[in-house]
Amino acid sequence: MIDLPKGGDLLRAMAEALTTDVVPNTTDQAQYTSRIVANLCLVVAREFDVDAADDHLRLELLRDFLPEHSGDLAQMTGWLDSLIAVNALDDDRALHQLLMRDVEHRLAIGRPNYS
């Protein structure tokens, strides 16, 4: 049983309330903070929307790229980071492509229209 509205919808409503009711009625630091909080509500709402499948997709990309390594998303990211640090990855174009794909997945949450 899930209570409604869902978390993501509540966060969007919170962002809307902040943007429409609070931001126009505040100034300076309070207005700036209200905008930041409204934006964070939307970020978290999008995070609610993206299900575990997206993380799984990111993990699969990393596993395909680093077949000799294993681990969860954080561990695989750590592997990638340390292999780049020691210049152990030869296919630079493929690496660039992998990094961009991962970034695009994360941008879908943090800033969907950023391109």
Partner: peptide, 23 residues
């Protein structure tokens, strides 16, 4: 600080910009 908390979610924009510039 809420500003510091929010900063973490903007890092990805710089990562995107960097990859685009390098590309």
């Amino acid at each position: 600080s809420i500003v510091h908390a929010a900063s973490g979610r903007r890092v990805v924009e710089l990562e995107y910009d960097l990859l685009t510039l390098i590309g």
